[in-house]
Design a protein around this nucleic acid. Structure first.
Lengths: 192, 192
DNA sequence: GACCCTCGGTAGACTGATCTACCTAGTCTG
DNA sequence: CAGACTAGGTAGATCAGTCTACCGAGGGTC
């Protein structure tokens, strides 16, 4: 058993450390040295695995996207009804807040990243696509019950609830707002 | 007529330049030199007016808060009904998007700022208070029509719509989502 | 009207730290 | 032996913040 196996590959440890630092301190104020030191990795290991800091940021955004998908799939697997599938999205957001809470919950990592990326950064477009995918998941989950255009309207409404609650929750450092948004959504689904 | 009168006070021009740069490029990636150059001002003029970059950031956040209040008051003055007062909040957000669109709309400057501020930064708390004030304005506008606890629930719901739509609009660089949120809110008020 | 003084501003050099990115030379392991 | 990784250094830019020396307008005073 060598060091690599014990602690994982250099690339993986860099991504993990970058994930922690980017989320906690922001992207622009996190230096390459801080990441390599956090990961316990040589600086050249970063540049052997990523072309530049911008490429690392893109990988970070992709990783957060995949992470969220994992949280959602776990919740969706437990859902029995279409409404449960919708609420699984809210639960995934709450789970994300709980996971981040250990090191200081500061809102959605992807929205925070987009906030400090220039309007034309590729990673910013990736965040936009992520949020569109969330909306698509909601629309699909709603498709079974209501007619199609009503489902699009409703999924947009639920999306706004979701992102708005996440923004407020991030400012407050706790998930209360997300739990409230879930209750509002459940209420709306009941009335359907 | 001297230079000061022609171009405004150094402090004012610094705040204006910082406002442009912080919003467009983010706070951490905007250097002091870029701001003074943009303002056409000596570096010492910045440090004579602000104790540090952090103090300038706080002034920036305060200025954005005041700016939004101005937009809201202008819209609120035109409102005839309690529902109109509520929709004036949505209109103020749309107006803000329109004003920012000239130089690249990138969402709510205050949320963007909070996204790159550490969890314990004073300016972050100021952003939180700002959003609570927006919610309070909504609650007060709703107070006339419905009973009190219902107004609190509804204002939270509207707040989520507002901030969620702003987050999505910022990612997309246009105000379409905000206009949709306003329509959703109008619909909800109709049903009341 | 001449004088001076204060105040806000200017230009630019400077410090010391930190940034990204690249390089070298050596180590460990399958 | 090859490939991944290490420590540590270096280049060159940029960062926040400080300092000095100077300028000019407005206000008060004699």
């Amino acid at each position: 058993m060598n060091v690599r196996e014990r602690r994982g590959s250099a690339r993986g440890r860099i991504l993990e450390a970058a994930g922690r630092r980017f989320y906690a301190d922001g992207i622009a104020s996190t230096g390459i040295d801080a990441i390599t030191a956090d990961a316990g990795v040589a600086k050249m290991s970063l540049y052997n695995n990523f072309a530049s800091k911008a490429a690392l940021v893109e990988a970070y955004v992709d990783a957060r996207h995949e992470e969220w998908l994992g949280l959602y799939r776990a919740r969706a697997a437990l859902a029995a009804s279409p409404a449960g599938l919708v609420l699984a999205v809210f639960d995934a957001y709450i789970d994300h807040a709980a996971a981040a809470h250990r090191q200081g919950f500061r809102g959605c990592g992807l929205l925070n990243a987009a906030a400090e990326l220039g309007a034309d950064a590729p990673a910013r477009a990736a965040v936009r696509r992520h949020k569109e995918e969330v909306e698509g998941i909601l629309a699909e989950a709603l498709g079974g019950g209501a007619q199609a255009d009503r489902a699009a309207d409703l999924s947009e409404h639920l999306c706004f609830l979701l992102e708005g609650a996440m923004a407020r929750a991030g400012l407050e450092g706790q998930d209360t707002r997300l739990v409230r948004a879930r209750a509002i959504a459940a209420d709306m689904l009941d009335r359907l």
